[in-house]
C-alpha cells in the first residue's frame, strides 16, 4: 500500500540558492509527522511545492500514490490535500458557518451552484455543526470572521481545512502567535483531530512537536538532515547541534 503523501527527490533552486535539496520524504497513513528546522531551512518552500504554489525544478510529489507534481492548487485540494497557513488566511466578511459551509459545498462540487441556497441543505448544516462543535466555535459562529479572537481564528483556520475532508493535512505552524490563554485549547483540539487524516506538522515550537508527533523529520539548508521517532530525534547529537550549537553540524 502506498504512503499517504510522498516526495521523491524534490529539488528547487532560486537563482544560485538551493532552497529544497533532493528531499525524499514519506508520510505514512494516519501519521502524526512533524517537519522541523531552523529559520530559513526551506520549510515554507517545501510546503509550497506540496500544495502547488511553486513548481519544483525536479522530483515528484505523490498523493496516495498519484503523481500530483503538475496539478494546480484546486485540483490538489480536490484530491484530498488540505492545508492551513502560518499566517491566518481567512474570509473576513464571512461567518464561521459560511466559511465552513463554503469548504463543504466546494468539496461536494456544489460551489458552482448559483440557484439553490445553502439554507435548504441540512446535510451541509450537519457537517458544519460537527466542525463548529469539534473546534468550540459555537459561540462565535454567526460573527464575521474578522471579529473573532486570534485563537478562535486559528481554530477556524484548521476547521476550514478539515471541512474539505482531506486525507492529508498540512498544518503550517498552527500555534504561531496564539496567546497563552488560548494555547491549551488549540493543543487539545489538535490532539483530537481524526486519526484517519494523515498530518504533516510544520513547526518551530518543540513542545508542540514533541507532544503531537510520533515521527520527526529535520530540514536543514533545504535538505533532509535527520529523520526518526521522537526519542531518536531528541537524542540525535546533530539535531541538538543545529538547534543549540548554532552553525556547526555533521
Amino acid at each position: 500500500m502506498s504512503a499517504a503523501l510522498q516526495t521523491i527527490g524534490l529539488h528547487k533552486c532560486f537563482g544560485g540558492l538551493v532552497a529544497t535539496n533532493d528531499v525524499t520524504l514519506t508520510l505514512a497513513h494516519g501519521a502524526r509527522h512533524a517537519l522541523i528546522g531552523p529559520n530559513g531551512a526551506g520549510k515554507t518552500t517545501f510546503v509550497n511545492q506540496l500544495t502547488g504554489v511553486l513548481a519544483p525544478d525536479a522530483g515528484q510529489v505523490l498523493l496516495g500514490g498519484i503523481d500530483i507534481t503538475r496539478l494546480g492548487r484546486t485540483q490538489r485540494v480536490r484530491l484530498g490535500l488540505g492545508r492551513t497557513f502560518q499566517i491566518n488566511q481567512l474570509f473576513g466578511d464571512l461567518t464561521p458557518v459560511e466559511s465552513i459551509g463554503l469548504a463543504v459545498s466546494e468539496r461536494m462540487r456544489g460551489g458552482g451552484d448559483f440557484w439553490r441556497g445553502l439554507g435548504t441543505r441540512r446535510d451541509i448544516a450537519r457537517e458544519i455543526a460537527e466542525l463548529i462543535e469539534r473546534f468550540g466555535l459555537g459561540d462565535v459562529m454567526a460573527l464575521p470572521t474578522r471579529d473573532l479572537s486570534y485563537g478562535k481564528q486559528r481554530l477556524l483556520e484548521i476547521a476550514i481545512a478539515l471541512a474539505g475532508a482531506p486525507r492529508v493535512l498540512l498544518l503550517d505552524e498552527p500555534a504561531a502567535g496564539v496567546p497563552e490563554a488560548e494555547r491549551q485549547d488549540l493543543l487539545d483540539t489538535l490532539g483530537r483531530l481524526p486519526r484517519d487524516v494523515s498530518i504533516l506538522l510544520i513547526e518551530h515550537d518543540m513542545d508542540l512537536v514533541f507532544s503531537f508527533a510520533d515521527r520527526i523529520s529535520v530540514l536543514v539548508n533545504g535538505g533532509l538532515f535527520a529523520e526518526g521517532t521522537v526519542a531518536e530525534i531528541m537524542a540525535h547529537p546533530g539535531v541538538r547541534a543545529v538547534y543549540l550549537g548554532g552553525d556547526e553540524h555533521g
Binding site: T51, R73, T74, V77, R78, G82, R83, F85, Q89, L90, F91, G92, D93, L94, S99, L102, A103, E106, R107, G111, I160, A161, A163, G164
Partner: peptide, 15 residues
Amino acid sequence: RAIRGNSLRAATVGV
C-alpha cells in the same frame, strides 16, 4: 465573497 476576501485561501478550499 470568499474570493474577494482572500483568493489564495479560496483556492485552498477548492474554489
